[in-house]
Design a protein around this nucleic acid. Sequence first.
DNA 1: CAAATTATGACGCCGCCG
DNA 2: CGGCGGCGTCATAATTTG
Length: 660
Amino acid sequence: MEGNSDKEGSDGFCWDSDEEEDPRDIPALACLSPIVPVGEVGAGSGELSDGFHWDSEEEEEKVPKLSSSSCLNSRDCAGKAIVDPGEASSSAGPSNNKLISEFVVMGFSRERVIQAIEENGKANAEAILETLLTYSDKELVAVHYPLHTLNFFYGADALEESPPKRQHVVPDLSSSESAGDIFNEFSDVDSDLGTEENIDPLSGRENTLKLLVDMGYPIYEASMAMDRCGEDASIAEIADFICAAQMAKAADAHLPEPTFSSSGEEERKPNGICFAPPKNGKRKFFEEEERRRRKREKRFEKKVFDEDGGTLSLPKPMIGFGIPSEPRPIIRRTLPQAAVGPPYFYYENVALAPKGVWQTISSFLYEIMPEFVDSKFFSAAARKRGYVHNLPLENRTPLLPIPPQTIHEAFPLTKKFWPQWDGRTKLNCVQTCTASAKLTERIRKAIEDYDDEPPLKVQKWVIDECKKWNLVWVGRHKVAPLEPDEMESLLGFPKNHTRGGGICRTERLKGLGNSFQVDTVAYHLSVLKDMFPNGINVLSLFSGIGGAEVALYRLGIPLKNVVSVEISESSRNILRSWWESTNQKGNLIDINDVHLLDAGMLEKLINSIGGFDLIIGGSPCNNISGSNRVSRDGLEGKESSLFFDYFRILNQVKYIMGKS
DNA sequence: CAAATTATGACGCCGCCG
DNA sequence: CGGCGGCGTCATAATTTG
C-alpha cells in the first residue's frame, strides 16, 4: 500500500510531475523567538528548589492552565503553528502542551521542560525559562539565535492553507550593533557558562551537595548519587536517584534477592546457555527503578506530544530524493530564503532516531526536510541515514566506478561457502563493534554436526546472528566478521585508508563505523562540481576519518582549504595522512575541539581563506543510535548535543560571510 | 597501561491478533 | 484500540590480555 507510484509518496509530500518553474513566492512563516537577554541568565535561579518535589507520580497529569498572556510575552505564538499544528485546535484554551511546546521549539528538551515546569509552577514562564537556562549550556546557545521555523514545500500543494506572514530572518544578528559586539557577547556567554560554577549557587558540586543535604539527604548518598548521575545532572535527577536508592535499600531489607526472572525473558540461544547476571542485586534494583521512572516520563510525554504524530515518516524505499539506478523522481523544493546557499551545508545523522529528534534537527535547520537514504542503494552494505542539506537536487551524478552492489560481487571468495539457505545479498550497517570469536565458534559448532542443511531452527538462529553481527562466510561452516579493509571498500574509502600510522584495530573499527558512506554522500555533493570548478573551501565538522573530503576528492572537486574539526587524534591522523598521500594542493587545517571554533576564530579563518563554500558534518549519534544500550538520550545526550554546535557554527559562518 | 575481548538490553517501529 | 512479540540498530562498560 505504500504506493510504488512515482507520482505521490504517502509520506505527506508529493512528487511534482511537471518541472516548470513556479515563480510563486513562498510565504515563510515568521517565528521569531525573543532573544533572551544575556544578563538574565542564572538570575534568580537560586530559588530552584522552591516547590520542588521528586515524588510526583501522578500530578504531572493535571497541570493548571497558563494564561496566554504569560506565554513568554514578547513571543509570537502564532508563528509556531507550523511546528505543532495539531495542538492549537485540539484544546479549548492554551494548555500545558502549548507551554511545553513553546520551550521545546526553542530547543530545550521535553524532559527538561517538564521538569522545569514542575519546579516552577506553570504560571511563571520566565522562571521556567531561567531554570531551563541553568540546565545546559548547549541548549543555551540555541536560545540566542532566531529560530528559523520557515516553510519548505515538497511540490506545490503542501500547506496551501498556511497564511502568508511577514518574514523576518536574522534580525537579531543584523541589528544596529556591530558584529564584533554581538560576537563578543556570544563568547561572553560561553565563558560565563564555563565559569558558571563560581556564580551560580547550584552548579558547583559542593553547592549541589550542600543543597541536597539541606533537603534532608544523607551526605554519603547524595555524593554517590551525584557521581552516578554525572556532572550535568539536575538537582531533580539526583534527588530522583537518591529516592530510588532509598527505596532499593528498603526493599533489600525485605527481599533477600530481587527477582530478575520476573521479566520472563527466555534466552534465544539454541544451545541453552544461561548467563547469570554478575551485577549485585542492589545495583540492579537502582537501574530498574531508574528505568521505570524514565518509562513513566516517556509515557507521559507520549500522551502529551503525540497528538500531531511527532514523527517524520521514513520513505519506503529509503531513496531520499533519488538514487542513480532509478529514474529521478521529479521533486521541486523551495528553500526558505535564509537557507539558500552559498554557503551550502550538509548535515547527517542516523535515520532511526528516537521520536522527535529529526523534527528538532529540522527545526533548527530552516525546517528543511531531511533526505533519508539507505546506502544499500549505493553499495553492498546498508546504512540508513538522514541528510539535511540545501544543495540543488538536479544533475546529480554517481561516483565512478560504481562499487559492487551485492555481497558476492564485493567479496567473491565468500561465494563458494555461502549456504543456500542464507539469502542475504546486502550486508547490514557497518558498526563500531564486531562479533566475538566465541560467537563465530558457537555458530560453527551448531552447524558442523549436520552434513547438508541444518534444521530450520538452527538456520534461523544462525541467520539472525549473521544479520545482527554482519557476518560473512569464509569457510565451510565458518562465519567471520568483516575485516577493517573490507569495511573500507564497502564505505567507499581507498584500501588501507585507516591502516597504519599508529592506529590500532579498535580505533579503525570505531572510525569506520562512524563514517560516511562515500558513494552516497558524493552523489549528493556531485552538484557542486560544476559550481566550483576552481575548487572549494570546506568547513568539515566532526570529520572523523574524512568521508566528506574523500567524497569531494573522488568527485574531482579541488579542495582549496579544508578546516576539519575532529576530536579523535587517531582520526585526525588518518585524515592528515590521506591528505598527504594524495598530494593535495590545498591547505588542511585541523582543529581538535569544536568548542575552540568560536566566532573570533571563524572570523579569522573566513577572512584568511575568503569564506566557506560548504559546511559539512554529521554530529555524533551516540545518544541517538538504537545500538546504544546505555544512554539513548536523544539530542540532549552528552555527545549528540554537539548538533547544536553544528547549528551554532553554521549560523555564525553565515552571518560573518553575510557581512562582507 | 593500552588494546583487545566479551557480554550486555533498550528503544522505537511495525505487523499481528484478540 | 492496545498489548505483544519480531526486528534492527554510526554502542558502552566491565574484564582480560599483552
